[in-house]
Simulated assay, not measured.
Amino acid sequence: MNIDAIVRFVLMIGIPAFMMWRGYKKMSEEERNDVKTDFTSKRFIFTIGLFALGWVFLLLEPIFEMTWLETIGVVLLSIGIMVSIVLTWLDAPSKRKAVLKTITFLILFSIFLWANY
């Protein structure tokens, strides 16, 4: 097990998860129901959910040293980004803004792949 990878995992997943949990506990019941509705929507699951799950798999791969975790992580991350791009294109009132967001997503994804491989 790689100690650096465990520290990276805790910093990138553990701290934000703790902060979100603490914020959730401070919410009123109505706000909690709104959060539950947002987090269980199909749009959230297929965009941010797949992206986050792919990120978790990519962070777990160096800890357990299983290459299939990295493969699954990249696939989930790619699907999440592609679905996000398509939904951004379909929902954009201005196609110019949709193109700029799409280019930004693709640049960030290519930088991410370049930095990790």
Rank of each mutant, 00 (worst) to 15 (best):
M1A: 03
N2I: 00
N2H: 04
D4M: 07
D4H: 02
A5T: 01
A5Y: 01
I6V: 09
V7A: 03
R8C: 00
V10F: 05
L11H: 06
M12S: 01
I15C: 02
F18P: 01
F18A: 10
F18E: 07
F18N: 02
M19H: 08
W21C: 06
W21F: 08
W21K: 12
G23Y: 11
G23N: 11
Y24D: 04
Y24S: 00
K26N: 12
S28G: 08
E29K: 13
E30Y: 08
E30M: 12
N33I: 11
D34F: 06
D34L: 11
D34N: 07
D34Q: 12
V35E: 07
V35G: 05
K36W: 03
T37L: 03
T37G: 07
T37D: 11
T37I: 06
D38H: 15
D38R: 14
F39A: 15
F39V: 13
F39R: 11
T40D: 04
S41L: 07
S41R: 14
K42L: 10
R43L: 15
F44K: 10
F44N: 10
F44R: 15
I45T: 13
F46G: 01
T47H: 09
I48F: 15
I48E: 11
I48P: 12
L50N: 09
A52M: 12
A52E: 08
L53G: 14
G54A: 11
G54I: 12
W55H: 09
F57D: 06
L58N: 03
L58Y: 08
L59M: 04
L60W: 09
E61Q: 12
E61M: 04
E61K: 13
E61H: 06
P62W: 15
I63M: 13
I63G: 10
I63E: 12
E65D: 15
M66A: 08
M66C: 10
T67Y: 05
T67S: 10
E70H: 08
I72C: 03
I72Q: 03
I72G: 02
I72V: 15
G73L: 05
V75I: 14
V75N: 10
L76M: 12
L77N: 08
S78K: 01
I79Y: 07
G80C: 05
G80K: 10
I81H: 12
I81C: 11
I81P: 10
M82D: 02
S84W: 05
S84N: 11
S84R: 12
I85E: 00
L87A: 01
L87K: 01
L87S: 07
T88V: 06
T88M: 05
L90Q: 14
L90D: 01
L90T: 09
A92Y: 14
S94A: 10
K95Y: 09
K101P: 04
K101E: 01
T102S: 07
T102G: 15
T102F: 04
I103V: 14
L106R: 06
L106E: 02
I107C: 05
F109P: 01
S110R: 08
S110Y: 09
F112D: 03
L113M: 10
L113E: 03
L113H: 02
W114V: 04
A115R: 03
N116L: 04
Y117W: 15
Y117S: 07
